[in-house]
């Protein structure tokens, strides 16, 4: 029976995120939140593996209390356990500290065979956490998976690596990093939503994973954000006006002026 850990993250709905025009910061309260898209592919991978080889899936997420919403969503997809890793002192952790917190929580949860993460989160886009968890546990991290089989404690995987298709064997445990190229995420059934949505969630705090406050959050993170600015290198912004056809004509003239169209 496979013990599968899936790391997921709650992210702001990027399309709907709005910026305070005066302060230049993200208006956090107004933001709709969701499961990071790649992480749904991670859940899908776990479900497929469980269907084929049997097992138990534990979804973990680090975040503020409202991050439990995405664990409920994970329940609806059919994961067995949901763990929220939440402590005020984790706030502001950079990739490294996030990786460390997740890794320590995984240690706390006991043995596992497979960890699955999304390739990257749409809010931070660092794409580092999977690698750092794999480094913490000294696990091979496999991406761009085309096909996977589990045989006698090993994973036999076909993957794309650079410009090559490879068939490889890796002894478990292993870390798989997946995104939308890997699989197609199912839509959860209504019965599953009804039955599992309110399943109990386990919460782990700093006291559970060990350590002291100064190791975590902004205090513990080696990187410091010293400035945010809106990113504008303004240009001329010459408005091309008129009817649609007139706009097309003017635009074609501009292209000729810039020597881009030459007839």
């Amino acid at each position: 029976m496979l013990k599968i850990i899936v790391c997921i993250k709650q992210v702001p709905h990027t399309d709907k995120a709005s910026i305070d025009p005066k302060k230049g910061t993200l208006i956090r309260d107004s933001v709709e939140r969701m499961i990071n898209p790649d992480d749904l592919n991670a859940i899908e991978m776990a479900l497929t593996l469980r269907e084929r080889f049997g097992g138990e899936i534990t979804c973990i997420t680090m975040g503020p209390p409202h991050a439990e919403d995405i664990l409920r969503e994970a329940f609806a997809y059919g994961v067995d356990r949901g763990v929220l890793i939440s402590d005020p002192c984790f706030a502001g952790s950079d990739s490294l500290i996030t990786s460390m917190v997740l890794s320590r929580a995984i240690v706390k949860l006991g043995t596992f065979n497979i960890i699955i993460t999304g390739v990257e989160a749409i809010d931070g886009n660092t794409g580092s956490v999977g690698y750092q968890i794999s480094e913490f546990f000294k696990l091979p991290l496999i991406t761009k998976i085309h096909k996977i089989d589990i045989l006698d404690g090993s994973a036999v995987i076909e993957r794309l690596y650079g410009h090559e298709y490879q068939q490889i064997r890796v002894d478990l445990p292993v870390l798989l990093s997946v995104n939308k190229e890997t699989n197609r995420v199912r839509i959860p059934a209504l019965a599953a939503i009804n039955a599992y949505f309110d399943n109990p969630i386990v919460t782990l705090t700093m006291a559970d994973i060990g350590g002291s406050e100064k190791e975590f959050g902004i205090k513990g993170s080696p990187t410091i954000v010293i400035n945010y600015e809106s990113f504008l290198q303004k240009r001329g912004q010459e408005r091309i006006s008129g009817s649609t056809q007139e706009k097309v004509e003017t635009f074609v003239k501009k292209l000729k002026k810039h020597n881009i169209l030459r007839y």
Partner: peptide, 24 residues
């Protein structure tokens, strides 16, 4: 934070802002 440190810029907040980051 001291002199001669590396100042790195990258998009942040889902790409809505530019963050300056150091590792002092």
């Amino acid at each position: 934070y001291g002199n001669g440190i590396l100042s790195m810029k990258r998009p942040a907040f889902s790409g809505n802002m530019l963050a300056t980051i150091i590792c002092p």
